[in-house]
Design a protein around this nucleic acid. Structure first.
Lengths: 212, 212
DNA sequence: ATGGTCTTGTGAAAAAAGTCACAAGGATTT
DNA sequence: AAATCCTTGTGACTTTTTTCACAAGACCAT
């Protein structure tokens, strides 16, 4: 990398989490060094693409040898903002919401579910382990108290926009949306759509064309 | 479109489910006609991109007027293979697996969860509504019996590759993978990765750069 | 009919992403 | 310390995707 102001391709950013995953595994097993060839094979991309991606962040490897796993892992964590511990709020304490709250894989990514919110009075006060269910009207005070960063939307589609509005007003700048709706948010709020059914439809498409 | 053998860009295919979603909403509300401009705005892309995408499938619109919502919806359903009713198998009857099995949104997309599989003897025979939990060794016979099309992998990462192998041997050509692992499969098997944590990491990345 | 006003469909141009191939440079052996 | 062996980093090139801009139609009003 020779220019301070090169733009990093979006496609590169979208692959960083994959690199993170592979490096975590290698680090966990105790592998000290890995070549671009090996890593790329695990992910299913070409080694030149991997090297090009990493090159945007400067010389992270050692020529003739490969990449130092724990060094590269630390760098990617930094780039992905994983050196910050993020607190998740889950809005919608239904099946999906509670399944997510119970998912064990967050902590190793420096993510932590700290609160559930719901509108159903019957659910308020429930605890899933350490995590309590609050009424949705408490979004703002609990955000401050628990330092919540990311609002996860797991309510039905019909309620999603309204709930999002409440989250934005409470000050959330990142929304992780599981409802099958395009949410309208201000410029400075980031939305990540996790539209599950949409994903499986592409599989359906492939199934109906045996010809390649 | 003038050549029978134009290749349809992958990027186009990946947007079709979004078009489907918007059109479904419009159709549900009873809107008869929509312009590329309106649709594109709802999705957050440019109208020319939308028109170009649709142009790969032939003249689907009416010049000067727009697109006939129900006609276009039917076309996209056809392209996405949604005129076929697809049967899902869910392998891994844990929290995520059962949450998916209980999700109500599948049917309106012509998808249906028909069976759960697990290795835990204690779970075999459980029923979630109509859906029964079978032992994973029954994958092949049940696939034939229930005409299962898509194998959904919701087992822990460590078991995912092994379970995938079993699914491929049972004849599944489409795998919907929720385990945080790149699965190795033969050429003719399609895998859709639904790597949730990876998704939220990109949000984390945005949070740590207030500068745009 | 004719003219005006739409919005599509699409070649051509631009931008973005991905691949190639090899010089640069570090490690290891002799 | 020279030679050899590796694998990175990266310009140049190729392919893919997106954007532009406008001709081709379709509808509507007069």
């Amino acid at each position: 990398m020779k220019d301070e102001f090169v733009v990093i391709p979006k496609a590169t950013i979208s692959r960083l989490p994959l690199y993170f995953r592979v490096l975590s595994e290698l680090d966990h097993v105790g592998v000290p060094i890995v070549s671009s060839e090996e890593m790329a094979a695990k992910i299913g991309i070409t080694s030149s693409q991997l090297r090009k991606d990493l090159s945007y962040f400067g010389g992270l490897g050692i020529r003739g040898t490969g990449y130092d796993v724990s060094y590269l892992l630390a760098k990617i964590k930094e780039i992905l903002g994983m050196n910050h511990h993020r607190h998740l709020a889950i809005i919608g304490a239904g099946k999906l919401g509670t399944a997510l709250a119970g998912y064990g894989g967050f902590l190793q990514h420096n993510l932590e579910v700290k609160a559930l919110f719901d509108i159903d009075e019957a659910k308020i006060g429930w605890k899933l382990g350490e995590i309590e269910v609050y009424h949705i009207s408490e979004l703002k005070p609990r955000k401050e108290e628990l330092k919540l960063d990311i609002a996860t939307i797991t309510v039905p589609a019909a309620a999603a926009q309204q709930v999002t509005k409440a989250a934005v007003e409470a000050g959330f700048k990142a929304i992780w949306n599981f409802a099958p709706v395009r949410l309208e948010v201000p410029e400075d709020v980031h939305v990540r759509n996790e539209d599950l059914v949409v994903g499986v439809l592409t599989l359906s498409h492939h199934l109906s064309r045996k010809n390649q």
